[in-house]
Amino acid sequence: MARPSPTGASADAKVHGGPGFSKKHLLGIADLNAYEILDLLDRAERMIPVSRQERKVLPTLTGKTQINLFFEPSTRTQGSFEIAGKRLGALVMNMSVKTSSVSKGETLIDTAATLNAMRPDVIVVRHSAAGAVELLSQKVGCSVINAGDGAHEHPTQALLDALTIRRHKGRLLGLTVAICGDIANSRVARSNLLLLGALQIRTRVIAPKTLLPRGIENMASEVFTDMREGLKGADVVMMLRLQHERAAGKMIPSVREYYRFYGLDEEKLAFAKPDAIVMHPGPMNRGVEIDPAIADGDRSVITDQVEMGVAVRMAVLDALIASRNEPNP
């Protein structure tokens, strides 16, 4: 039997309704192997036309209930999951729970038990604490999708990034991907490093040492503190959002110094390959980590990332729920 090759879109992409995806939850890229990652990318590829047609419906989730449970405010990720669910015909409910470490009301477990009793088919969760989504998944009967847990993982972001890269470059294998910014506190960086690592793609991280986690040399192929060096010959430049309100004065001295050494401007981007694409998970801090002219320029694929986000989330929802031949809990 032909298996998808790690070089790009598999030649014999499975038709919709083919073999089911074996996982119940999507908690992190760490739980997926190369074939599962490529399978999800292929599924997402097939979802793209749905959002481009006039009637944007593929009703594989009709009668299913999706709850978006967000403990951290998020406009784009929550909106993306909501649209993805609705285009698949699911009944989507958004729940935003305000929490702070000082005034904790209902515990995460209580919330999980309450929602579980409403018999949803999938819960999409974002939480500020690493591991919180996995904890919640242990307490509910339905599928759980991690929409970001602390500095741990953000798997659908890594999948949509990979899909965007593959569509622009026509392949993944052989590329060099540079990830630049606050690696230490970034779940996007971790999920991307895991995904690219699983596909044996060359990864570089670029950051001041204060924003690099211990042991990063085991997580990326190469580590750079000089952005020009790190960008040399890169095919993809992935910028990260800097939480500058938190970092300034502690991890970096000031925004202007950060921008000088780690902000992506024309001069630094010139070190990357001439056809290198520029990515950002959003929301962007223009003038902090990226020059507005580049963010909105012709090498930026940032709006494509947003479109691929919907496709990837449709594919994940479909794979976890519709393709599973299992009755509702």
Partner: peptide, 13 residues
Amino acid sequence: NEGHFASVLGLKG
């Protein structure tokens, strides 16, 4: 404990 394992888990060390 600070180190590779904490970094993988996304926990502060």
